[in-house]
Design a binder for these strands. Structure first.
Lengths: 285, 285
DNA sequence: CGCTATGTTGAACAGTTTCAAGATGCGTGG
DNA sequence: CCACGCATCTTGAAACTGTTCAACATAGCG
């Protein structure tokens, strides 16, 4: 999905993560919409040209499968921060793959409590969990300016019926999601505020690095505010602030102005019981 | 998986959920192991005879696909309560479908804190999330006496490559899991002890009823202890006890001696913001 | 330059944990 | 059938972690 496939190799995606320059947008397919509400770079017209495709989170796709996937794409969407990208309770909520920028899914209860369920980075497939069940009013919102490919639910389901590679790929991504959710569940259930923050920072750092394949110790783009982190971690924004202050004071990590710096990965990992196996793909056969 | 397929219809599965009489176990396929460590009823030899197959949580399977799935099964396992059924970190952790009894997955940190990630009821596929990524030391333990079908990971992966129905079915089950995890995440992040317990009780009651298709208001089998509930909800056993006492006093629900009674579904649902859409299958096309 | 969103810090409060003691229930063996 | 023993559940009181409310600081943006 979202132009999956191909083998890993040297990729320059820094511009995608940091919202730098825009990519070319010529030669669209028939019937494709481009909703241009923001400034992030739009994905290329042909999936084969898509840098995202090479990222580690996709299973290899052959050229003909890639072409089939590209036919499923119904639109390209660009949107500024804060835009509601998707409402899963809607009858025909589509699937999306983030091409550039960050988004997040969340649920809000009647009394206004918000729980962020996941952050979405470039290359992530969003909404696959709602292929099967209608979720409970989950919203996807752009955290930064975002560009994404849109795939209609019905088309994807129809294609899955006779395209094992697509089904397997989606199953694969869902499995990875589930592993991440298990870790998050452990955080909310059994870790202290400080440990939760440390763990989330390490997870997002690992996910960013899987995409960039560079700069292991350096500053990483990190758009979420304390409020976002609090709503993801089941805390108040004040608790996040205090936890962040303590981690910074101990020289472990630093979050400021949209940038995350992991200063002492080993002590951080020891603090929160971090292990990275759950993000690393398993050999499939 | 675990004999999926077929359309809903009148089914008598009370015995499976309550661990009553055993089913016949003749005519096994070649090379199939039967590990008999306990007393629960074993699944039938032929997937086509499997009552579980008819349950709502599976997508329809044709007869030939059913036969293919049956060929993947490597063993049948019966085990008493407390048995470690599976260790996901193991190199070749298999997949399992529960046929009778309850199980649960959990992770335990170095300092002994346990987080239960999910409960598994008859018909549930366990371990699919580890097809793609090696989880972080997740263990599956029998909560009651359990019988289950075992499928080797490699065989399933190989079959998925060219069997879209299987891939789609697994994607479907993973999607349902993810929706449940989202709800659980909301619980741990944003609900009080009382609300968490109410919500979990409603969810498990709904899942039991999806299998039994009977007895909507009556007593339901409910094996988890306060300790299990606490570890699933991110609470202490004492907090669960206090929450349960309050819910009972208000005439909302009652948990005692392995039996759950939902006394006032409407007020319970209002209390915790329960909605059932996330368990109900969406029309696929 | 000033507005607004975000981050920081303090103090009172609340919900949950922890520790502890006792009650209840259930299976086992006499 | 009853007595014992162990696991589970219940209840109380103190301690703790995080929440809430409030004031202020800082940064980014028009």
């Amino acid at each position: 999905m979202g132009c999956p496939g191909a083998l890993p190799g040297p990729v320059h995606l820094v511009y995608v993560l940091s919202l730098g320059r825009a990519a070319g947008t010529h030669g669209r397919a028939d019937g494709e919409t481009v909703m241009d509400e923001g400034q992030p770079p739009a994905p290329p017209a042909r999936c084969a040209d898509c840098g995202i495709r090479r990222l580690a989170m996709f299973r290899p796709f052959g050229p003909q499968q890639l072409a089939e996937v590209q036919r499923l794409r119904s639109a390209i969407r660009r949107a500024p921060p804060g835009t509601e990208l998707m409402r899963h309770s809607a009858h025909d909520a589509p699937l999306m793959t983030i091409y550039a920028g960050w988004a997040f899914s969340h649920t809000t209860s009647d009394d206004g409590a918000r729980q962020i369920l996941d952050f979405h980075l470039p290359g992530d497939l969003v909404g696959a969990e709602h292929l099967a069940v209608k979720g409970t009013d989950t919203l996807v919102e752009a955290l930064t300016a975002v560009s994404a490919c849109v795939f209609p639910r019905r088309k994807v389901l129809a294609e899955m019926e006779h395209n094992p590679a697509l089904s397997a790929s989606i199953a694969w991504l869902l499995a990875r999601d589930e592993a991440m959710l298990h870790e998050r569940l452990f955080s909310l259930g059994r870790r202290s505020a400080e440990e939760r923050l440390a763990h989330l920072a390490l997870e997002l750092a690992a996910r960013i690095r899987l995409r960039r394949r560079v700069d292991v110790g350096g500053p990483l783009p990190f758009p979420p505010t304390h409020r976002h982190l609090a709503d993801a971690l089941g805390l108040s924004a004040e608790a996040v602030s205090r936890a962040a202050t303590r981690l910074r004071a101990h020289g472990l990590e630093q979050i400021a102005r949209g940038v995350l710096i992991i200063r002492d990965p080993d002590r951080l990992a020891a603090l929160c019981g971090w292990r990275d196996e759950y993000l690393v793909p398993r050999e499939m056969l």
